[in-house]
Nucleic acid binder design. Structure first.
Lengths: 219, 219
DNA sequence: TAGATTGTTAATCGATTAACAATC
DNA sequence: TAGATTGTTAATCGATTAACAATC
C-alpha cells in the first residue's frame, strides 16, 4: 500500500495505472468517448474485475449502467500519477543506452522533461547527444541538480559506478531513481528505485523457453 | 507457478533468479568462494528468508552450517534459467532504442546472441548499426527467422506496429518476446511476453513523488 | 421499467515472513 | 560437542477473482 494524503493504493495497482492511462489515450485518439470496464480492460490487457478493483482505490468515477467517460477518467489517473506537475529529469551515463534515453520522445510528451545530461568521459562531456542539451561532467552533479531543480534521475552508468552515483544523487536531495544497472542499490528507505534490467528480462524468457521444452519432452 | 519437467517454480521466484545469478557472479569476481544466505541476499537486495525459500524451489544445494558454494550455485541457477543452450535473438525496429539494444554488450556475454536485425525504413535497411550484422527488411521476417533459427525476439518498433509484427513473429514459430512498446499485445496463450515500459516506470516514480508530497503536507 | 454496468464484498489464491528443527 | 546455517513448516499478508447488490 502506498499512502497518499487521501488515498491508499496497493503497489500492484500503482504499477498498472500507466497501462490504464495508455489504454485510455489510445481509445481517446480512436475517437471513443465512453468506455466500459470490459473494453478498457481488454485494451489494457487485464481482466475487467481487476480493472474495476484497481479504479476503486482511486475513487468512484464511473456511471453504473453506462461506463466511464474516457477523457475524465484519464484526467483522474493522470492526476493520481502526479503528472500534473512537471518532473525534471537528469540522465546520468551517456553510453549506448543513455544516448537512446536522451533521444527518447516518450517523456517529453507528458509530465517529464529532461533538463540535464551527465557523464565522466571527456569524449562525451560537452557534446549534445540529443541536439539541444550539452553533457556536463559528473563532478558537477550536485550543482547541476540544484541549478536545474532535478526531481528524478535516470541512471544509465556502468554497473560498477551505479551505487556511488546513486548515493550522491540521494545526498543531493533527489528521491526517485530509475536505474538501468542490474545491481541492487543499497539506499535509504525513503528512496524509491525502479529498475529495468534487459538481460534479466531475457533470462526470465529463457526460463520459460526451457520450461516449455522440458514439459513438452516429458508430458 | 511455472512447471518444468521436474520443477514447479513460482513466477515471482523466477523473476528474482537473474538477480541471484548476478549477485553470485559479483561475489565470484570478488574472489568469494563460499557464501551464506544472509550475504547473498544482501548483495541481491532481498531478505535471507526469501532467498532460501526461492532456492528451495530449485532443490537443495547448500550445506547446513556452511552455506553455498558460489560457483556451483551459479551453475544451478544458470541451468534453471536455460542459459546452457544459446538463445538466438532478432531485434526488430532499429530506432534509438533498437540501435542501443543492438550495441548492448549484456547478452553477448552469456547465453544470448543477436543473429538478426530488422526494420522497414529504407534509410536503415542494409546499414550495420553494431558494426557486424546488416539490417534486413521486415518483409523478409519469416525467412530470416527460419534461416537464423531465431528463438527470441526483441520488439523495439513504434507502438502502432507492435501488434501486427508480434503476430507475424508468433506465426513464424517464435514464442518468447521482449517488448519495449507500451501496448498490451493480444497473443495466443502459449506466447510469453515480457514488457519494458520506460515511460511507465517514470510514471510509477511520479506516483511515489506525489504520495510523498501529499503525505508530508498532511501528516 | 428492463437492461446494463459499476463498485464492493467475500472467497480464493499466491507470495512473503518468521521461526525452528535438521544437520553440517 | 558447540556454533552456524540451511531447508521447511506454519502464519501472515497482499493480490486476484468471482459474484452480485446497487443504481444508472
Amino acid at each position: 500500500m502506498i499512502e497518499t494524503g487521501d488515498l491508499a493504493v496497493p503497489a500492484a495497482t500503482v504499477a498498472r495505472l500507466p497501462h490504464y492511462l495508455r489504454a485510455l489515450l489510445d481509445l481517446q485518439s480512436a475517437g471513443v468517448r465512453t468506455t466500459s470496464s470490459t473494453e478498457l480492460a481488454d485494451v489494457a490487457g487485464v481482466s475487467s474485475a481487476q480493472l474495476r478493483k484497481d479504479l476503486s482505490y482511486l475513487g468512484s468515477y464511473g456511471t453504473r449502467g453506462v461506463g466511464y467517460d474516457v477523457a475524465s477518467l484519464s484526467t483522474v489517473i493522470s492526476t493520481a500519477l502526479g503528472l500534473g506537475s512537471t518532473h525534471r529529469l537528469a540522465i546520468i551515463g551517456l553510453g549506448n543506452l543513455g544516448h537512446a534515453l536522451a533521444n527518447y520522445s516518450g517523456y517529453t510528451t507528458r509530465g517529464f522533461e529532461v533538463v540535464a545530461l551527465l557523464d565522466v568521459a571527456d569524449a562525451v562531456v560537452g557534446t549534445r547527444p540529443s541536439g539541444s542539451l550539452a553533457v556536463e561532467h559528473l563532478d558537477d552533479l550536485e550543482q547541476v541538480i540544484k541549478r536545474e531543480a532535478v526531481t528524478m534521475v535516470v541512471l544509465a552508468t556502468p554497473a560498477h559506478a551505479a551505487q556511488s552515483v546513486a548515493e550522491r544523487v540521494i545526498a543531493a536531495g533527489v528521491r526517485e531513481i530509475l536505474s538501468f544497472s542490474p545491481v541492487a542499490l543499497q539506499l535509504p528507505d525513503d528512496a524509491v528505485v525502479r529498475s529495468v534490467d534487459v538481460a534479466g528480462e531475457l533470462q526470465i524468457l529463457a526460463f520459460h523457453a526451457a520450461a516449455r521444452t522440458a514439459t513438452r519432452s516429458v508430458g
